[in-house]
Amino acid sequence: MLTKFKPIALAVLSFALAAPAMAEEVNLYSYRQPDLLKPLTDAFEAETGIEVNVAYLSKGMVERLTAEGKRSPADLVLTVDISRLAAVVDAGLTQPVHSDILVANVPAAYHDPEGQWWGLTTRARVVYTSKDRVKPGEVTTYEDLANPKWKGRICTRSGTHAYNVALTAAVIHHLGEDGAKAWLEGLKANLARKPQGNDRAQVKAIWAGECDIAIGNTYYMGEMLEDPEQKEWAESVNIVFPVFEGSGAHVNISGVAMTKSAPNKENALKLMEFLTTPEAQKIYAEANHEYPIAPGVEPGDLVKSWGDFTADNVNLMDVAKLRPAAVRITEEVDFDG
Rank of each mutant, 00 (worst) to 15 (best):
E232F: 10
R157Q: 14
W117N: 04
K4Y: 10
A124H: 02
T129E: 06
I239A: 08
N164S: 09
A74V: 14
S30K: 04
L28N: 00
K135D: 09
K304S: 13
G248P: 00
K6E: 13
A170N: 07
A16W: 01
P136D: 12
N313W: 03
T276Q: 03
S58G: 13
E68Y: 12
K131R: 15
Y284G: 02
S236Y: 02
I8H: 04
A86T: 07
A214R: 01
D336K: 11
Y291Q: 08
Q202Y: 00
V237G: 01
M272R: 02
A23V: 15
G92Y: 09
S254R: 06
A162L: 02
V139S: 00
W233V: 00
G119D: 03
Y128F: 15
V89Y: 01
A262W: 05
L102Q: 04
A325Y: 01
Y56M: 07
K265Y: 12
S247K: 05
M61D: 02
E24G: 11
E226V: 08
I172D: 00
P292M: 10
N198T: 10
W207A: 08
E232R: 15
P278N: 06
E226F: 09
W118C: 05
A23C: 12
L76W: 02
D112V: 06
T3E: 09
D132Y: 08
L17C: 09
R71P: 02
L269H: 01
L316W: 04
V134R: 02
E114Y: 11
T140K: 13
A146E: 00
G115I: 06
G209S: 10
T276F: 04
L40N: 02
V314D: 04
P148G: 10
G60D: 07
L271I: 10
D90P: 06
K131Q: 09
G296A: 12
V251H: 01
G307D: 06
A162N: 07
A74G: 08
Q33N: 14
V52Y: 05
A46V: 11
V303M: 08
G197S: 14
A109D: 14
E223G: 07
G179A: 08
A180R: 02
L10V: 11
A205E: 03
K151I: 04
K149P: 03
P324I: 12
L167T: 03
S254Q: 14
D318N: 14
E47T: 11
E229C: 01
S14D: 13
A9P: 01
A182N: 09
E226H: 12
M22A: 15
E290V: 13
A285H: 08
V256I: 15
P324N: 11
V303C: 06
P113C: 14
M317L: 15
R133V: 05
